[in-house]
Amino acid sequence: MMAVANKQNNRAARRVLPGFGMGMGFTVFYMSLVVLVPLSALLLNKTGLTWDKFWSVATDPRVLASYRISLGTAAIAAGVNTVLGLLLAWVLVRYDFPGKRLWDALIDLPFALPTAVAGVALTAIYSANGWIGSLLAPLGIKAAFTPLGITIALMFIGIPFVVRTVQPVLQDAERDVEEAAATLGAGRWRTFRAVILPTLVPSLLTGFALAFARGIGEYGSVVFISGNMPMKTEIAPLLIMSKLEQFDYAGATAVALLLLLISFLLLLGINILQHWVRKTAR
Protein backbone atom coordinates (compact mmCIF):
# COMPACT_ATOMS: atom_id res chain seq x y z
CA MET A 1 0.00 0.00 0.00
CA MET A 2 2.84 2.32 0.81
CA ALA A 3 4.46 1.76 -2.57
CA VAL A 4 1.17 2.39 -4.37
CA ALA A 5 0.67 5.65 -2.45
CA ASN A 6 4.19 6.81 -3.33
CA LYS A 7 3.59 6.08 -7.01
CA GLN A 8 0.35 8.04 -6.93
CA ASN A 9 2.07 10.97 -5.25
CA ASN A 10 4.85 10.93 -7.85
CA ARG A 11 2.29 10.90 -10.67
CA ALA A 12 0.43 13.79 -9.08
CA ALA A 13 3.67 15.74 -8.78
CA ARG A 14 4.38 15.14 -12.46
CA ARG A 15 0.97 16.52 -13.38
CA VAL A 16 1.48 19.70 -11.35
CA LEU A 17 4.79 20.72 -12.91
CA PRO A 18 6.00 20.19 -16.49
CA GLY A 19 8.55 17.50 -17.18
CA PHE A 20 12.26 18.00 -17.48
CA GLY A 21 12.18 18.34 -21.26
CA MET A 22 9.59 21.11 -21.31
CA GLY A 23 11.08 22.89 -18.29
CA MET A 24 14.62 22.71 -19.65
CA GLY A 25 13.48 23.88 -23.07
CA PHE A 26 11.72 26.91 -21.61
CA THR A 27 14.75 27.69 -19.43
CA VAL A 28 17.14 27.58 -22.39
CA PHE A 29 14.79 29.66 -24.53
CA TYR A 30 14.31 32.30 -21.83
CA MET A 31 18.01 32.52 -20.95
CA SER A 32 18.93 32.71 -24.63
CA LEU A 33 16.40 35.45 -25.32
CA VAL A 34 17.26 37.57 -22.28
CA VAL A 35 20.97 36.88 -21.70
CA LEU A 36 22.76 34.91 -24.41
CA VAL A 37 21.43 36.73 -27.48
CA PRO A 38 22.30 40.26 -26.23
CA LEU A 39 25.77 39.11 -25.14
CA SER A 40 26.28 37.34 -28.45
CA ALA A 41 25.29 40.52 -30.26
CA LEU A 42 27.95 42.35 -28.27
CA LEU A 43 30.56 39.78 -29.24
CA LEU A 44 29.55 39.53 -32.90
CA ASN A 45 28.85 43.21 -33.47
CA LYS A 46 31.02 44.40 -36.35
CA THR A 47 32.32 47.70 -35.00
CA GLY A 48 35.78 47.48 -36.51
CA LEU A 49 37.17 46.04 -33.29
CA THR A 50 40.34 44.16 -34.05
CA TRP A 51 42.61 42.36 -31.61
CA ASP A 52 45.13 45.23 -31.79
CA LYS A 53 42.38 47.77 -31.10
CA PHE A 54 41.05 45.68 -28.23
CA TRP A 55 44.50 45.33 -26.64
CA SER A 56 45.18 49.03 -27.10
CA VAL A 57 41.95 49.99 -25.35
CA ALA A 58 42.30 47.34 -22.64
CA THR A 59 45.76 48.54 -21.64
CA ASP A 60 44.94 52.24 -21.80
CA PRO A 61 45.75 53.86 -18.41
CA ARG A 62 42.39 55.66 -18.32
CA VAL A 63 40.50 52.41 -18.90
CA LEU A 64 42.52 50.55 -16.27
CA ALA A 65 41.89 53.36 -13.77
CA SER A 66 38.14 53.18 -14.41
CA TYR A 67 38.21 49.42 -13.78
CA ARG A 68 40.07 49.91 -10.52
CA ILE A 69 37.50 52.46 -9.38
CA SER A 70 34.47 50.37 -10.41
CA LEU A 71 35.70 47.02 -9.10
CA GLY A 72 37.34 48.42 -5.97
CA THR A 73 34.41 50.50 -4.78
CA ALA A 74 31.93 47.75 -5.68
CA ALA A 75 33.90 45.20 -3.66
CA ILE A 76 34.23 47.49 -0.64
CA ALA A 77 30.55 48.45 -0.74
CA ALA A 78 29.49 44.81 -1.07
CA GLY A 79 31.73 43.83 1.85
CA VAL A 80 30.33 46.55 4.11
CA ASN A 81 26.79 45.68 3.04
CA THR A 82 27.41 42.05 3.93
CA VAL A 83 28.10 43.02 7.55
CA LEU A 84 25.42 45.70 7.79
CA GLY A 85 22.89 43.58 5.93
CA LEU A 86 23.40 40.72 8.37
CA LEU A 87 22.86 43.13 11.27
CA LEU A 88 19.69 44.60 9.73
CA ALA A 89 18.28 41.17 8.90
CA TRP A 90 19.03 39.99 12.43
CA VAL A 91 17.19 42.94 13.99
CA LEU A 92 14.18 42.56 11.67
CA VAL A 93 13.87 38.82 12.33
CA ARG A 94 14.80 38.44 16.00
CA TYR A 95 13.20 41.55 17.56
CA ASP A 96 9.77 43.16 17.69
CA PHE A 97 9.63 46.94 17.96
CA PRO A 98 7.32 49.79 16.97
CA GLY A 99 7.49 50.61 13.26
CA LYS A 100 9.09 47.29 12.36
CA ARG A 101 6.99 46.87 9.21
CA LEU A 102 7.85 50.41 8.10
CA TRP A 103 11.58 49.77 8.47
CA ASP A 104 11.19 46.44 6.71
CA ALA A 105 9.52 48.20 3.78
CA LEU A 106 12.22 50.89 3.66
CA ILE A 107 14.82 48.19 2.95
CA ASP A 108 13.32 47.81 -0.54
CA LEU A 109 13.30 51.55 -1.27
CA PRO A 110 16.51 51.44 -3.36
CA PHE A 111 14.77 48.91 -5.61
CA ALA A 112 11.87 51.26 -6.35
CA LEU A 113 13.69 54.60 -6.30
CA PRO A 114 15.15 55.73 -9.65
CA THR A 115 18.91 55.57 -9.41
CA ALA A 116 19.33 59.10 -10.78
CA VAL A 117 17.15 60.45 -7.96
CA ALA A 118 19.29 58.57 -5.44
CA GLY A 119 22.45 60.00 -7.01
CA VAL A 120 21.19 63.59 -6.82
CA ALA A 121 20.03 63.13 -3.22
CA LEU A 122 23.30 61.57 -2.10
CA THR A 123 25.31 64.29 -3.82
CA ALA A 124 23.29 67.02 -2.09
CA ILE A 125 23.68 65.36 1.31
CA TYR A 126 27.39 64.49 1.10
CA SER A 127 28.66 67.61 -0.69
CA ALA A 128 30.78 70.09 1.27
CA ASN A 129 27.71 72.20 2.14
CA GLY A 130 25.33 69.27 2.58
CA TRP A 131 23.85 67.97 5.81
CA ILE A 132 26.41 65.21 6.32
CA GLY A 133 29.18 66.63 4.16
CA SER A 134 29.34 69.80 6.26
CA LEU A 135 29.92 67.64 9.35
CA LEU A 136 32.66 65.64 7.65
CA ALA A 137 34.48 68.63 6.17
CA PRO A 138 35.93 69.90 9.51
CA LEU A 139 37.34 66.39 10.04
CA GLY A 140 39.14 66.57 6.68
CA ILE A 141 36.86 63.96 5.12
CA LYS A 142 35.53 64.68 1.66
CA ALA A 143 32.81 62.32 0.52
CA ALA A 144 31.27 63.76 -2.64
CA PHE A 145 33.34 63.58 -5.83
CA THR A 146 35.69 60.99 -4.35
CA PRO A 147 35.85 57.16 -4.31
CA LEU A 148 34.29 57.37 -0.85
CA GLY A 149 31.19 58.95 -2.35
CA ILE A 150 31.03 56.23 -5.00
CA THR A 151 31.24 53.59 -2.27
CA ILE A 152 28.43 55.24 -0.32
CA ALA A 153 26.21 55.29 -3.40
CA LEU A 154 26.91 51.61 -4.08
CA MET A 155 26.17 50.76 -0.45
CA PHE A 156 22.80 52.47 -0.83
CA ILE A 157 21.75 50.50 -3.89
CA GLY A 158 23.26 47.19 -2.73
CA ILE A 159 22.00 46.80 0.84
CA PRO A 160 18.60 45.26 -0.10
CA PHE A 161 20.29 42.34 -1.86
CA VAL A 162 22.04 41.20 1.31
CA VAL A 163 19.10 41.77 3.66
CA ARG A 164 16.58 39.98 1.45
CA THR A 165 18.97 37.05 0.95
CA VAL A 166 19.83 36.54 4.62
CA GLN A 167 16.41 37.32 6.12
CA PRO A 168 14.59 34.14 4.96
CA VAL A 169 17.44 31.95 6.23
CA LEU A 170 17.24 33.56 9.66
CA GLN A 171 13.48 33.13 9.71
CA ASP A 172 13.75 29.41 8.93
CA ALA A 173 16.60 28.79 11.37
CA GLU A 174 15.73 26.40 14.17
CA ARG A 175 16.02 27.91 17.64
CA ASP A 176 16.35 24.47 19.26
CA VAL A 177 19.99 24.21 18.21
CA GLU A 178 20.78 27.58 19.77
CA GLU A 179 19.02 26.56 22.98
CA ALA A 180 20.96 23.29 23.04
CA ALA A 181 24.24 25.18 22.65
CA ALA A 182 23.29 27.51 25.49
CA THR A 183 22.37 24.52 27.65
CA LEU A 184 25.84 23.05 27.05
CA GLY A 185 27.41 26.25 28.32
CA ALA A 186 28.17 28.11 25.10
CA GLY A 187 28.04 31.89 25.34
CA ARG A 188 26.20 34.15 22.91
CA TRP A 189 29.24 34.87 20.75
CA ARG A 190 30.29 31.21 20.59
CA THR A 191 26.74 30.17 19.74
CA PHE A 192 26.60 32.72 16.96
CA ARG A 193 30.03 31.82 15.60
CA ALA A 194 29.73 28.04 15.82
CA VAL A 195 26.00 27.43 15.31
CA ILE A 196 24.33 30.32 13.50
CA LEU A 197 27.04 31.78 11.26
CA PRO A 198 27.86 28.54 9.35
CA THR A 199 24.24 28.30 8.21
CA LEU A 200 24.33 31.93 7.05
CA VAL A 201 27.59 31.81 5.07
CA PRO A 202 26.03 30.62 1.76
CA SER A 203 23.34 33.31 1.89
CA LEU A 204 25.92 35.94 2.85
CA LEU A 205 28.06 34.96 -0.13
CA THR A 206 24.99 35.16 -2.37
CA GLY A 207 24.11 38.61 -1.04
CA PHE A 208 27.71 39.75 -1.51
CA ALA A 209 27.76 38.46 -5.10
CA LEU A 210 24.47 40.18 -5.96
CA ALA A 211 25.50 43.49 -4.38
CA PHE A 212 28.92 43.29 -6.03
CA ALA A 213 27.46 42.54 -9.47
CA ARG A 214 24.97 45.39 -9.15
CA GLY A 215 27.75 47.76 -8.07
CA ILE A 216 30.01 46.97 -11.01
CA GLY A 217 27.44 48.05 -13.57
CA GLU A 218 25.75 50.83 -11.58
CA TYR A 219 25.55 54.15 -13.42
CA GLY A 220 22.67 56.41 -12.36
CA SER A 221 23.35 56.75 -8.64
CA VAL A 222 27.12 57.07 -9.13
CA VAL A 223 27.48 59.45 -12.05
CA PHE A 224 26.49 62.52 -10.00
CA ILE A 225 28.39 61.88 -6.77
CA SER A 226 31.56 60.60 -8.46
CA GLY A 227 32.54 63.87 -10.12
CA ASN A 228 33.59 61.92 -13.25
CA MET A 229 37.26 62.91 -13.06
CA PRO A 230 39.38 60.74 -15.40
CA MET A 231 42.01 58.63 -13.63
CA LYS A 232 40.44 59.48 -10.26
CA THR A 233 36.67 58.99 -10.00
CA GLU A 234 35.61 57.92 -13.49
CA ILE A 235 33.75 54.59 -13.45
CA ALA A 236 33.81 52.06 -16.29
CA PRO A 237 30.11 52.40 -17.28
CA LEU A 238 30.59 56.17 -17.64
CA LEU A 239 33.65 55.59 -19.82
CA ILE A 240 31.56 53.36 -22.08
CA MET A 241 28.94 56.11 -22.40
CA SER A 242 31.64 58.67 -23.14
CA LYS A 243 33.06 56.56 -25.96
CA LEU A 244 29.59 56.03 -27.41
CA GLU A 245 28.95 59.78 -27.38
CA GLN A 246 32.23 60.21 -29.27
CA PHE A 247 31.10 57.56 -31.81
CA ASP A 248 34.00 55.35 -30.73
CA TYR A 249 31.95 52.17 -30.95
CA ALA A 250 35.00 49.91 -31.14
CA GLY A 251 36.44 51.43 -27.97
CA ALA A 252 33.12 51.20 -26.14
CA THR A 253 32.75 47.56 -27.19
CA ALA A 254 36.28 46.76 -25.99
CA VAL A 255 35.64 48.34 -22.57
CA ALA A 256 32.31 46.54 -22.26
CA LEU A 257 33.79 43.17 -23.25
CA LEU A 258 36.64 43.46 -20.78
CA LEU A 259 34.27 44.54 -18.01
CA LEU A 260 31.99 41.62 -18.87
CA LEU A 261 34.90 39.18 -18.75
CA ILE A 262 36.21 40.46 -15.40
CA SER A 263 32.72 40.45 -13.87
CA PHE A 264 32.00 36.93 -15.10
CA LEU A 265 35.27 35.53 -13.73
CA LEU A 266 34.77 37.20 -10.35
CA LEU A 267 31.16 36.01 -10.04
CA LEU A 268 32.17 32.53 -11.17
CA GLY A 269 34.78 32.43 -8.43
CA ILE A 270 32.24 33.54 -5.84
CA ASN A 271 29.76 30.89 -6.99
CA ILE A 272 32.43 28.18 -6.80
CA LEU A 273 33.31 29.33 -3.29
CA GLN A 274 29.64 29.29 -2.34
CA HIS A 275 29.22 25.76 -3.68
CA TRP A 276 32.31 24.63 -1.75
CA VAL A 277 30.99 26.16 1.49
CA ARG A 278 27.63 24.42 1.09
CA LYS A 279 29.34 21.13 0.32
CA THR A 280 31.62 21.28 3.36
CA ALA A 281 28.73 22.32 5.62
CA ARG A 282 26.81 19.11 4.92
Rank of each mutant, 00 (worst) to 15 (best):
I196A: 05
P38I: 04
L88S: 11
S242W: 12
G48T: 02
L268R: 01
T146E: 07
G220T: 02
L205F: 00
P61K: 08
V93P: 14
F111C: 02
L154S: 02
K232S: 08
L17A: 15
N129G: 09
T183M: 12
N271V: 12
F161C: 01
A12V: 15
I225Q: 03
L265E: 05
A65Q: 02
A144C: 15
V166D: 08
F20G: 10
V34L: 14
H275W: 11
I157N: 04
L261R: 09
Q171V: 05
M24K: 03
A78N: 04
G185I: 07
I240L: 08
L260P: 01
D104C: 03
I150T: 03
L139Y: 08
M2C: 09
A121R: 08
P202I: 09
V83C: 13
L200Y: 12
D96E: 14
A209N: 07
T206F: 04
T73M: 02
V34N: 13
W276R: 12
S203N: 07
V80T: 09
P110H: 11
G217L: 11
S221Y: 08
K232N: 04
G85V: 15
I262F: 11
A181V: 05
L109E: 12
P61C: 12
L17N: 15
R11C: 05
W103R: 13
I152C: 06
F29Y: 14
I132L: 10
A143L: 11
T199Y: 02
R15L: 15
T47K: 02
E179H: 07
K243Q: 11
R193W: 08
P114G: 03
V277D: 02
F247E: 04
F224Q: 05
L92G: 04
G220L: 03
G149V: 01
A13T: 10
T151G: 04
N228P: 06
L205D: 01
I262V: 10
F264N: 12
R62F: 06
T165I: 07
